[in-house]
Structure formats: structure tokens, C-alpha cells
């Protein structure tokens, strides 16, 4: 299916894509014999925006911010703990403002939280560190019990739940978990901590579609441009190019 009119755009979607990406790649067939298909679902920036729905007070609500897995205590503990790992400062928002606890909650409710694509067959044996994760615990079990344990530990040591102790005290609790410096009956503390830290950073920097990185503020702090279609015109530039980030939502053609 070679293109016999190499200077003609394949179709409307391709024309829109070329405008959209601003690249001069000519009118060639993309994707070879399978034809030109890139950009067919890309949002047309040149098209007039559909008139926005009338503004109401409820527009500021994010209805995606609700719990799929955690209970209220676990959620608040997750929010407080994540904020200590990635705190708000003069560079920008911290984990709380970025919606990281919602991200973690949603991930725990997902296939990832139930380890559905991991090998979970028994038997389980004590492993060497070089052999990786060998716990029977699923991620959602480890995270929920770990958050409960953060509270339990705070209650024992400071007579208050984790969310009510001072930030320095929260850091001390987190450090104790990180270094496995404590004996917890139910939870491998450092495994929990490592997984929670990883989830926190994912929540800061994953596409906003997953509930964290609210308004792409995580990306903006790092000058990460999100997902642009092309950097051909910038790749050779000596100077740093700042681009307004784009999320996957910007690439979706809504019906």
C-alpha cells in the first residue's frame, strides 16, 4: 500500500496531526504498509474550542477524589506520611496537594494492588536479598497493614495517631520503618516503607489521569513537559526549552 502521491496528506487526521505537532515531515505514509494512522485521535488545537459548560460552584470539585480501597484513617495516614516523603516547600506543592494519597488508594484498588500480573504461586521460602520480593502479602495488604502499623507505632510511642504527631516525630517514625529498626508482629516494616515511598513518587509524577500529579504540578516543578508529540525542532538546541506540559487528557478526542 505504497503512497503514490507522496506530497498529499493521507487524510484529514494526518493533516491535523502535522499542524498539531508542528513538524515538517512531509506527506509520507506513516507506519509503512499499515498506512497513515498517527494522530487520528488527536485533539485538534486549531479547531474552535467547544463552548465550556456554564461555571457553577461544583466545578472545582474533583469527583475522582474519593476512596476505592482505604478506610478514612488509612487515607489520612497515607496522606500525612506521603507529605513527609515529598513535602510542600518553596519549589511547589507536596504529596498532599498533588493528590498522592488518592493515587495510592486507586492503585491499591487496581490490578497492581492485587498483584494480578505477578507470580504468586507457593511455596514461599526465605529468600536471599538478590532474589527479590518473596512475601505472600499482596501489595494492598502490605500497604494497608503498614499504614495501620504507622498509627499503632505512633500511638504506642507518642500516645497520638500518626496524623497528630509533629512533623519531626513523623519523620522519626518513618525512619524507624525504613531501617527496620522496630519489631512489628504483622508487618515487614522496611518492605512496606520501600513500597510506600515508590508509590509516593509515582503519585507525584504519573500522568494526572491516575489521580496524583494534580494539574501536572509535579511535572511543572521539574520542567518535565509530560507527553508532547514531537521534539524534533528542539533536540539540537543548546539552550533549555521550557514547554507547558501536556497530559494524556490533551491527546484524547472526546466524543
Amino acid at each position: 500500500m505504497a503512497n503514490d502521491k507522496p506530497n498529499q496528506p493521507q487524510d484529514e487526521s494526518r493533516r491535523r496531526f502535522l499542524k498539531y505537532s508542528g513538524t515538517a515531515i512531509g506527506g509520507v505514509v506513516l507506519g509503512g504498509v499499515i498506512g497513515g494512522l498517527v494522530g487520528a485521535n488527536l485533539k485538534d488545537k486549531d479547531k474552535e474550542e467547544t463552548p465550556a459548560a456554564p461555571q457553577t460552584a461544583t466545578d472545582n470539585k474533583d469527583y475522582n477524589q474519593a476512596l476505592m480501597f482505604f478506610n478514612q484513617d488509612q487515607f489520612l495516614t497515607a496522606e500525612a506520611a506521603a507529605e513527609r516523603l515529598f513535602p510542600k516547600d518553596d519549589l511547589g506543592p507536596g504529596a498532599k496537594e498533588l493528590g498522592v494519597a488518592f493515587f495510592i488508594d486507586h492503585q491499591m484498588a487496581s490490578a497492581f494492588g492485587t498483584n494480578s500480573r505477578d507470580y504468586m504461586q507457593p511455596p514461599y521460602y526465605k529468600a536471599e536479598a538478590t532474589q527479590g520480593y518473596q512475601l505472600v502479602f499482596k501489595r494492598r495488604e502490605l500497604i494497608a497493614l503498614g499504614l495501620d502499623a504507622l498509627n499503632g507505632y505512633s500511638n504506642t510511642k507518642y500516645k497520638k495517631p500518626f496524623v497528630e504527631i509533629a512533623p519531626e516525630e513523623q519523620d522519626a517514625v518513618l525512619t524507624a520503618f525504613e531501617s527496620n529498626d522496630i519489631e512489628l508482629k504483622d508487618v515487614p516494616a522496611s518492605n512496606f516503607f520501600a513500597m510506600f515511598l515508590n508509590l509516593t513518587l509515582e503519585g507525584v509524577y504519573a500522568d494526572p489521569l491516575y489521580g496524583g500529579n494534580k494539574n501536572m504540578a509535579g511535572w511543572k516543578m521539574r520542567n518535565f513537559p509530560g507527553n508532547q508529540m514531537s521534539y524534533t525542532e528542539y533536540i539540537e538546541k543548546e539552550e533549555f526549552v521550557k514547554l507547558e506540559p501536556m497530559s494524556l487528557h490533551d491527546h484524547l478526542e472526546l466524543g
Binding site: 505504497a2 503512497n3 505537532s21 513538524t23 515531515i25 509520507v28 505514509v29 506513516l30 507506519g31 509503512g32 504498509v33 499499515i34 498517527v38 507527553n227 508532547q228 508529540m229 514531537s230 521534539y231 524534533t232 528542539y234 533536540i235
Partner: peptide
């Protein structure tokens, strides 16, 4: 073989990803 493909856009999503441009 007559297969024609477009150039790389330097988009930064290669390893672990498929290429939507081909």
C-alpha cells in the same frame, strides 16, 4: 520490501513503549 516509514520525533518514549509513528 516497499515499506515506507516516517522519521523519529525524539518524543522520549521508546524503551518499554511501542512507537506510534512506526
Amino acid at each position: 520490501d516497499g515499506v515506507e516509514r516516517a522519521p523519529c520525533q525524539y518524543c522520549g518514549y521508546c524503551e518499554r513503549f511501542g512507537c506510534e509513528y512506526g
